Simulated assay, not measured.
Amino acid sequence: MPRAVYVLALGIFAMVTSEFVVAGLMPQMADGLDVTVPQIGYLITAFAVAMAAGGPFLTVALMKLPPRTALMILFSVFLTGNVLAATATGYGVMLAARIITGIASQAFFGVGISLCAQLTRPEVRGRAVAVAMNGLMLGTLLGLPLSTLVGERWGWRAAFWTITALTVVAAAATLAGVPRTDPAGTGGGFRDEVRVFRRPRLLLALSTSTLIIGATFSAFSYFNPILTEVTGFSTGTVPALLIAYGAATVVGNTVVGRLADRYTLPVLATGLLLNLVFLTGFALFTDVPVPAVACMLGIGLVGVTMNPAMVTRVQRAGNAGPLVNTVHSSFITLGIILGSSLGAVAIDGWGLRAPLWLGAAMALAGLATVAPPLIRATR
């Protein structure tokens, strides 16, 4: 595995930590910016929407540049957004900062995953994506609790300055550890990359990714209130459970990465089926601690950890270029938006178990998008 793949994981870790930091410091940021907690919550939505809508346009603007140069520009934009957040004097400035960092983060994912494909042999690309995406898993496992700890001890601005420092380290590592490569090797130009979106099998693969992530985040977004108000855990216990969940995602991502290249569709189908079982089990036994925690960890093993197989399928259906990978990331982000927002609507109507049932329904729909190509492949 090329050293550059591990360097890209560090960059992704910085991006993901910045994405999650607001969720861990909502009360402190609300006090510091003199706004309400729901208004701080909108910053999370703004980041996600900026990722989904703005990332592909920034990727298009950088397509003719060598990937390493594009990554350094993205680091600069991301760094600017984090400095703006750390020094924000009002809500409007903070909102602008989150939009800037969201757009840069999404484009970084697209260019970085495309570069993974360019630097590795086709038969190990899924494994390379898994290594890079460990930055995402470690962002869940370590980035969120560490940034929350820094923010609680030294103030929320310190958390953003810490992420700024991490970004500088990741940028320096990228400059030193990522080789110069030809931009032509990443996909073949703008027209070639746009043309592939006419392929029905690519659109089907993109919809699968949205449903996998939507199913997972409809549950993950509400683990805290579910575990405290229904399962009965204390608020002090929940962080430890979330760390265990993060550890499960690291394990699952590693396993899926090993299997994604040879067994792409079976891995996706198995992951969706198991996620359906775990989400249903969590919904049925929410008030029983042991099975509830077991199902929660199961969701960690087979939820976002499908990323290497999802990326492999999308690249085979389309190409390994930066635009395809960025648009794929946008479909993944769409799943986060749908899962969390529809989960909120479900809670308002049917209570805290409802987002778990919603996740199960989305996993079932995801199975429906994987079953036809899997059946055709086995004939």
Results as ranks from 00 to 15, higher is better:
residue 68 R to V: 11
residue 288 V to L: 13
residue 172 A to I: 12
residue 307 N to W: 01
residue 221 S to V: 12
residue 159 A to V: 04
residue 259 L to R: 12
residue 148 T to D: 06
residue 63 M to L: 15
residue 354 A to M: 06
residue 144 L to F: 10
residue 15 M to F: 12
residue 20 F to G: 00
residue 139 G to M: 03
residue 320 A to V: 05
residue 350 W to K: 11
residue 244 A to P: 04
residue 281 G to H: 07
residue 375 I to H: 14
residue 379 R to K: 14
residue 310 M to E: 15
residue 374 L to P: 08
residue 165 A to G: 06
residue 299 I to C: 15
residue 65 L to T: 10
residue 232 G to S: 12
residue 352 L to H: 08
residue 168 V to G: 00
residue 39 Q to V: 10
residue 289 P to H: 06
residue 295 C to P: 10
residue 4 A to D: 01
residue 128 A to G: 02
residue 330 S to Q: 01
residue 125 R to H: 11
residue 9 A to L: 01
residue 133 M to S: 14
residue 349 G to M: 13
residue 346 A to Q: 04
residue 194 V to P: 00
residue 237 T to D: 12
residue 360 A to Q: 03
residue 320 A to I: 04
residue 205 A to F: 01
residue 16 V to N: 05
residue 261 D to N: 13
residue 178 V to L: 08
residue 151 G to Q: 07
residue 70 A to E: 09
residue 113 I to D: 15
residue 128 A to D: 03
residue 44 I to W: 03
residue 135 G to A: 03
residue 183 P to F: 07
residue 105 S to L: 11
residue 169 V to P: 01
residue 248 A to M: 13
residue 218 S to L: 01
residue 162 T to L: 12
residue 31 D to T: 13
residue 289 P to D: 06
residue 375 I to N: 01
residue 27 P to R: 05
residue 276 L to D: 03
residue 296 M to D: 09
residue 149 L to V: 09
residue 294 A to K: 07
residue 59 T to R: 05
residue 368 A to Q: 07
residue 238 V to E: 03
residue 379 R to M: 13
residue 18 S to P: 09
residue 249 T to V: 15
residue 157 R to G: 02
residue 351 G to A: 03
residue 188 G to P: 12
residue 372 P to N: 07
residue 371 A to K: 12
residue 307 N to Q: 13
residue 306 M to Y: 09
residue 100 I to G: 00
residue 343 G to E: 02
residue 328 H to C: 01
residue 25 L to H: 04
residue 191 R to A: 15
residue 35 V to L: 06
residue 283 A to D: 04
residue 25 L to K: 08
residue 5 V to H: 06
residue 334 L to C: 13
residue 124 V to F: 06
residue 106 Q to Y: 00
residue 355 P to G: 02
residue 1 M to T: 12
residue 23 A to I: 15
residue 98 R to K: 08
residue 359 G to M: 05
residue 298 G to R: 07
residue 250 V to I: 08
residue 313 R to P: 07
residue 304 V to Y: 05
residue 379 R to H: 15
residue 207 S to I: 02
residue 118 Q to V: 14
residue 183 P to K: 07
residue 290 V to Q: 10
residue 357 W to M: 08
residue 346 A to I: 08
residue 298 G to S: 11
residue 210 T to D: 00
residue 148 T to A: 11
residue 334 L to R: 00
residue 370 V to Y: 01
residue 2 P to Q: 12
residue 6 Y to T: 14
residue 348 D to H: 13
residue 317 A to K: 01
residue 65 L to Y: 11
residue 125 R to A: 13
residue 130 A to Q: 06
residue 214 G to K: 00
residue 321 G to C: 07
residue 226 I to D: 03
residue 28 Q to P: 04
residue 306 M to K: 03
residue 37 V to M: 11
residue 115 L to R: 07
residue 102 G to Q: 05
residue 72 M to K: 08
residue 361 A to V: 15
residue 148 T to I: 11
residue 71 L to F: 03
residue 283 A to I: 05
residue 206 L to Q: 00
residue 256 V to N: 11
residue 186 T to R: 12
residue 306 M to D: 03
residue 310 M to C: 14
residue 5 V to G: 01
residue 69 T to S: 13
residue 129 V to I: 15
residue 111 V to C: 04
residue 365 A to N: 05
residue 69 T to Y: 12
residue 251 V to A: 14
residue 133 M to T: 14
residue 247 A to S: 11
residue 186 T to M: 13
